[in-house]
Design a protein around this nucleic acid. Structure first.
Lengths: 110, 110
DNA sequence: GTAATATGTAACTTTTGAATTACGCAATTT
DNA sequence: AAATTGCGTAATTCAAAAGTTACATATTAC
C-alpha cells in the first residue's frame, strides 16, 4: 500500500465523531477555530487539537489571516481514503465474476 | 446522515491497523479465526475481538462450519464508507464550479 | 499603550481501547 | 469416553486518546 505523506493516517483522523462533524461543518463555509468551537460542547483547546489532527492527516488546509486561522477542506485526506477503498474494488469484481461462472455452469448442467 | 444499522460504526472499525490488515488478508481467501490469528503477533483472543468488531460494523460475514468459523468480506461496511465520502463529493464539485466562474470573470475583465 | 481577541501549548485527569492470561464449552478425533 | 481443537468471554493490565484548566503570545481595537 501507498505510504501516506501525512503524519497522521486518515483512518485515525476519522475515528473521532467530533472530527467528522468538523469536516461536515466545513462543507458549509470556511471557518476560523473559534467559530468552529462555538458549535461544540467541548472546550476550545480540545477543538484546536482536533483541527491539528485533521490538518496532519490532509483533510484541511489552514490559512492564517492576522490572528485568525481559517480552515478549509482539502482533498488529499479524502483521496487516501478513496485509494484504500479502491483496493477492495478488485475483490468485489472478482467475486462478481465467480458468481457469473457459477451461474453459467449451473445453467449448462441443466 | 443515514443512521447505520450496525452497532459499531465503520470509522471506528477501520481505526485499528490490525483490523485493516485482517480485511486485506480476507481479499486473498476465506479464513477461519485461527488461520487469521496465525498471521499476527497478537494473541488469538485479541484477534477474536477484532473479528467481532469487523462483524459488528458490517465488514465481514461469519459462517460456522462445525467448530470453525469462516470469515469473508462483506460489502455493507465498505458501502457505509463510500456513502460518507459521497457526501463530500458535492462539496468538491461546487468548489470546481466556483473556480470556473472565477476564471471566466477574470477573463471577461481582461 | 492598554484592553480585548484568537489562538497554541503544557500539565494533568479521565476515558477508551487494545492486549494478555485464564477459563469454559462445544465439536472433532482417536 | 478421553484428548484435542477451535473457538468465545471474563477479569485485568497498560497505553493511547480526549478532555480540561491554566498560561503564554501575537494581533487588533480603542
Amino acid at each position: 500500500m501507498a505510504k501516506g505523506k501525512y503524519s497522521v493516517d486518515c483512518f485515525q483522523a476519522l475515528s473521532d465523531p467530533n472530527r467528522r462533524e468538523i469536516l461536515m461543518m466545513l462543507t458549509k463555509e470556511k471557518q476560523n477555530i473559534n467559530a468552529i468551537a462555538d458549535n461544540f460542547n467541548i472546550s476550545r483547546p480540545a477543538v484546536s487539537k482536533h483541527i491539528k489532527v485533521l490538518y496532519d492527516s490532509g483533510f484541511i488546509t489552514i490559512t492564517t489571516q492576522g490572528r485568525e486561522r481559517y480552515c478549509e477542506l482539502q482533498q488529499q485526506g479524502f483521496d487516501e481514503l478513496k485509494e484504500w477503498i479502491s483496493f477492495f474494488e478488485t475483490y468485489w469484481t472478482k467475486q462478481l465474476k465467480q458468481l457469473e461462472v457459477f451461474l453459467k455452469t449451473r445453467h449448462a448442467k441443466k
